[in-house]
């Protein structure tokens, strides 16, 4: 009891020292958020040449805007597919890198990190070059006998998937390293015991490995979902949301409205909706972690 009292007293003493840091943190995090929310209630009227208060009109307009609905559905496809594929491929890669039978493990682990070390802009420009109509990928496909290789960036059915492929390639290293770190915490005796008991590879993965790294998986999925949902660079550089808005995503649409169409309020409304969507993910994550 006495020790608890002591801790409480210490915390009270520490609080005033934390105030400056908390003020700075609030300033940096909360001020832009409040600004964004406030801006959502205003819009610029070109004929009147003034910014006017419109209440929730920007939010109402979102649901009448076919482009917003398209961007929203594209963002869901983009996020779910990217995160899902990143996880599956990274899990497979991490398992291989964790194998004691693999030679040059350290070298492969180093190489696997390379794409993560590249800035998204560089990655996007690199893949844009690869995917160009006359680029290396189509040249290879053509030389392999494909008379009409796909137009990766200008086919409305392919543009979004081209962006997804790029994002998967860029995200795999981080997810792999995280899973690998989780795998290395598993007591090998348990895995060996399961093997002696006759558990198959699948049974070992499902019943032992995955439950053992559940928290790591949750962290990865949460972070990747947030990052991918918010990802702007790849789509902006590869397709700019085109052709025909086929690969338009919410962050890009918010940016276009705020910085190209002089519709900062509308852009802020889209930003708030992104925040709400991601809050659902974060709440789910916190609930699972605290369970």
């Amino acid at each position: 009891m006495r020790s608890n009292d002591g801790a409480l007293k210490e915390e009270r003493l520490a609080f005033p020292f934390l105030v400056p840091a908390l003020v700075v943190l609030c300033g940096i995090s909360l001020y832009p958020l409040i600004q964004g929310i406030t801006r959502m209630f205003y819009t610029y009227r070109a004929l009147a040449q003034q910014t006017v208060f419109v209440g929730f009109q920007n939010v109402e307009l979102l649901f009448q805007d076919p482009l917003f609905l398209r961007a929203f559905s594209n963002t869901l496809v983009w996020t779910i597919t990217s995160v899902g594929m990143q996880f599956v491929l990274s899990y497979w890669l991490a398992t291989m890198l964790n194998s004691r039978f693999l030679r040059f493990r350290r070298m492969f682990r180093g190489i696997a990190l390379v794409p993560w070390a590249l800035p998204p802009v560089v990655v996007s420009l690199m893949w844009r070059y690869i995917f160009l109509n006359g680029g290396p990928l189509n040249t290879i496909l053509h030389s392999l006998g494909m008379a009409h290789p796909p137009n990766w960036l200008t086919d409305p059915h392919l543009a979004l998937w081209t962006c997804i492929i790029t994002n998967i390639w860029m995200g795999i290293p981080f997810v792999t390293v995280m899973i690998l770190a989780g795998l290395q915490t598993i007591n090998k005796d348990i895995v060996d015991a399961a093997a002696i008991d006759g558990a198959s590879y699948i049974q070992t993965q499902v019943n032992i490995i995955v439950p053992s790294i559940k928290k790591v998986v949750l962290i990865i999925l949460t972070l990747e979902t947030i990052w991918t949902f918010n990802m702007f660079d790849i789509v902006f550089i590869l397709t700019k949301g085109g052709p025909g808005n086929a690969s338009l995503t919410l962050p890009l649409y918010a940016y276009e409205n705020a910085f190209m169409y002089y519709q900062a309020g509308y852009g802020a409304a889209i930003g708030l909706l992104i925040l709400l969507c991601l809050l659902v993910v974060v709440v789910f994550y916190i609930r699972e972690v605290l369970r």
Binding site: T43, L47, L61, P66, D155, P156, G244, Y261, Q263
Partner: peptide
């Protein structure tokens, strides 16, 4: 762009451009 890519005929594209364009102009306060 959709017309050029052969994904939509010109009449449909211009009709959509009219609907979406007017929605946009309204939002711009024009």
């Amino acid at each position: 762009e959709l017309v050029v890519l052969g994904k939509e005929d010109l009449d449909t594209a211009l009709s959509d451009a009219t609907t979406q364009g007017n929605l946009f102009l309204k939002r711009m306060g024009l």
